[in-house]
Amino acid sequence: MVSTSSTTGDSSTTGDKDIFRPRRSVLYMPSSNERALEKAKTLAVDGLILDLEDAVAPDAKPAARDNACAAAQSGEYGRRELTIRINAAGTEWHEDDLAAACAAGPDAIVVPKVDSADAVRSLVASMERHGAPDRTTLWAMVETPYAMLHAHEIASASDRLTVLVMGTNDLAKELYAEHVPGRQPLLTGLGLALLAARAAGKAIVDGVYNDVKNTEGFLDECRQGREMGFDGKTLIHPGQVAGANEAFAPSEKAVEDARGILQAWEDGRGSGVVTYNGRMVENLHVESAQRVLSMHEAITALEADQA
């Protein structure tokens, strides 16, 4: 059987670079809310963004910073990818947030409103200056028209940047656009960012869905994001986790077909033409099948750890 260990684009860059890391569901949690941080330990979520920015009132930010850093150092969140979103550069909290997050050493530091390659390089230099461990990567939020037009420069500015995060609420605001089903006003920006991430070999997660009571609309947007090629979706409510996990995971049929393709490829070595269920199999199909199985295996391991 062909090995399924090698993946690209959204492999983990912490530790073994060939370990696939699922990011189907990435949930924002306000770090000022200690009960929410405790609840997060029980959620079947792939990743957490412990938020110091939008979800936290100005007078609560110092305490939220302490809470987030304590959570990152606790070792109590299992295999969930644990990140801290700091306040943007130019705000009064940015430098203290960044220094504290670097010292805490989460899986990643999430920075809002990253608009240029220079901004990425400056952030990486600051992380190094503050002694962030090698395992702590950078996630850049891209959420302005300027960022969309410079997304590849941003994505390729540093190896330490591993994930682009779509900030669709801010993007809609900057475009003077409306939030409508199908997201037509945002599709150009989403597509540019997605192209940039894939060209640079980085992961990318879709923006949030605001109406937590509209389950049908949320699931439609998850399907759209999956069909476009996003690795997963950022979430604002625990009730959205299950839907995102299902939408961005390979189906049972996809896993079955992936195994069949790899077996057919192995069995047909040297024959010149390989087919599976009447369809011709080429290298590109093998690579796609390997990615499906890598994702399936990583999700299975994550869910077993959370059981």
Rank of each mutant, 00 (worst) to 15 (best):
residue 2 V to S: 02
residue 4 T to M: 03
residue 4 T to I: 14
residue 8 T to M: 08
residue 9 G to W: 12
residue 17 K to M: 06
residue 18 D to F: 10
residue 19 I to G: 00
residue 20 F to C: 09
residue 23 R to P: 03
residue 23 R to V: 02
residue 24 R to Y: 04
residue 27 L to P: 07
residue 28 Y to F: 15
residue 29 M to I: 15
residue 31 S to G: 13
residue 32 S to M: 08
residue 38 E to Q: 13
residue 47 G to E: 07
residue 50 L to I: 04
residue 54 D to F: 05
residue 54 D to R: 04
residue 54 D to I: 00
residue 55 A to Q: 10
residue 60 A to D: 15
residue 61 K to W: 02
residue 64 A to L: 10
residue 65 R to N: 09
residue 66 D to K: 14
residue 69 C to Y: 01
residue 71 A to I: 00
residue 71 A to L: 07
residue 74 S to L: 07
residue 79 R to P: 05
residue 80 R to A: 13
residue 80 R to T: 15
residue 87 N to K: 10
residue 87 N to D: 14
residue 87 N to Y: 09
residue 89 A to T: 13
residue 92 E to T: 08
residue 94 H to Q: 04
residue 96 D to T: 14
residue 96 D to L: 08
residue 98 L to K: 03
residue 99 A to I: 06
residue 101 A to E: 04
residue 106 P to M: 00
residue 112 P to T: 09
residue 112 P to F: 02
residue 115 D to M: 04
residue 118 D to S: 11
residue 122 S to V: 01
residue 123 L to I: 13
residue 125 A to W: 00
residue 126 S to Y: 00
residue 131 G to S: 10
residue 131 G to M: 14
residue 132 A to E: 04
residue 132 A to S: 12
residue 132 A to I: 09
residue 132 A to C: 09
residue 141 M to S: 08
residue 141 M to G: 03
residue 144 T to H: 09
residue 145 P to S: 11
residue 146 Y to M: 12
residue 146 Y to L: 13
residue 150 H to W: 12
residue 152 H to N: 13
residue 154 I to S: 09
residue 155 A to T: 12
residue 155 A to C: 10
residue 159 D to Y: 04
residue 159 D to V: 11
residue 160 R to F: 08
residue 160 R to D: 06
residue 161 L to C: 12
residue 162 T to E: 14
residue 165 V to F: 15
residue 166 M to K: 00
residue 171 L to D: 01
residue 172 A to L: 12
residue 174 E to H: 13
residue 177 A to C: 06
residue 179 H to A: 07
residue 179 H to C: 00
residue 181 P to Q: 05
residue 184 Q to S: 13
residue 185 P to F: 05
residue 187 L to V: 11
residue 190 L to E: 10
residue 190 L to N: 08
residue 197 A to T: 09
residue 203 A to Y: 00
residue 204 I to F: 02
residue 204 I to K: 01
residue 205 V to G: 09
residue 205 V to W: 01
residue 207 G to R: 05
residue 212 V to W: 01
residue 217 G to Q: 11
residue 219 L to N: 08
residue 219 L to Y: 03
residue 223 R to V: 07
residue 225 G to V: 11
residue 226 R to L: 04
residue 226 R to K: 15
residue 229 G to T: 09
residue 232 G to F: 03
residue 234 T to P: 00
residue 236 I to K: 02
residue 236 I to L: 13
residue 237 H to F: 04
residue 240 Q to V: 02
residue 241 V to G: 03
residue 243 G to T: 03
residue 247 A to S: 15
residue 248 F to L: 10
residue 248 F to W: 03
residue 249 A to G: 02
residue 249 A to M: 07
residue 258 A to E: 01
residue 259 R to T: 04
residue 260 G to T: 05
residue 261 I to H: 07
residue 263 Q to H: 09
residue 266 E to M: 07
residue 270 G to H: 09
residue 276 Y to V: 01
residue 278 G to D: 11
residue 279 R to K: 15
residue 280 M to Q: 14
residue 280 M to G: 03
residue 282 E to G: 08
residue 286 V to M: 07
residue 293 L to Q: 04
